[in-house]
């Protein structure tokens, strides 16, 4: 969005802004298409619960970081912008980490180093560089939330399938009915192991690109 729009009175959810929010969910998805921030998607998706906590943390950090950088965009000297961005992100992540430790201690233990690794999650840096440095706070906020949501849905999808197929539970509750086990159904312990996260994401990408043919890699 250019600075010319300043004088026009803009509706909060103009079509342009809505696009910022919805594009990253589908054809601009940070994980399936831009290949950013993969690490955490894979490592913490054994259970749905940790995935949800992680998704919320990333949404919070990303929305706020985009707004802060966008507010500061005219005062940050370009040469040191990376270190400024890292400082802003790291401070927000420290906040998130302390909140998680205070309210959901067990989940925070399971996430272990991956809360800290939100700092180096390339989606956040990427969006700050590509969007927040040039745009006003409100569109930046929407862009941040949109991208984080695009990240979140993949995270939740992977977490959902891995917990359902791997341990037969969702959020810790049994969902596979008992008679299924009596008929010989068994949980696929393989889904809990790390490599299956990669294969699950691979399959999600496959389905996504099958539905949206424009995304197919022709090279």
């Amino acid at each position: 969005m250019s600075e010319n729009d300043n004088n026009q009175k803009e509706v909060l959810f103009s079509p342009k802004n809505k696009k910022l929010l919805t594009n990253p969910l589908g054809k601009d998805n940070p994980i399936n298409v831009q290949v950013l921030g993969i690490c955490s998607v894979l490592a913490i998706t054994v259970q749905l619960r940790t995935s949800i906590v992680m998704a919320i943390s990333v949404v919070a950090v990303m929305g706020l970081a985009n707004v802060i950088i966008s507010l500061l965009r005219k005062t940050i000297p370009p040469r040191i912008r990376i270190i400024v961005q890292l400082t802003v992100i790291a401070s927000l992540v420290i906040l998130v980490d302390q909140v998680l430790k205070a309210f959901v201690y067990d989940v925070s233990r399971q996430l272990s180093v991956f809360v800290g690794l939100i700092i180096t999650n390339c989606i956040i840096m990427g969006r700050l560089e590509a969007f927040a440095l040039q745009n006003k706070p409100w569109p930046s906020f929407l862009d941040g939330i949109g991208n984080a949501a695009g990240y979140a849905w993949v995270l939740l999808a992977v977490g959902f399938f891995r917990e359902l197929l791997g341990s037969g539970t969702l959020m810790g509750y049994n969902v596979i009915p008992g008679f299924m086990y009596e008929m010989g159904y068994e949980d696929n312990g393989f889904m809990i192991l790390p490599p299956m996260a990669l294969i699950t994401v691979g399959i999600i990408i496959w389905v996504h690109r099958y539905k949206d043919r424009d995304l197919i890699d022709i090279s």
Partner: peptide
Amino acid sequence: PLRGLGITFIITG
């Protein structure tokens, strides 16, 4: 649809 990114994920798995 699997070319590029998708197959790389599966191989890494």
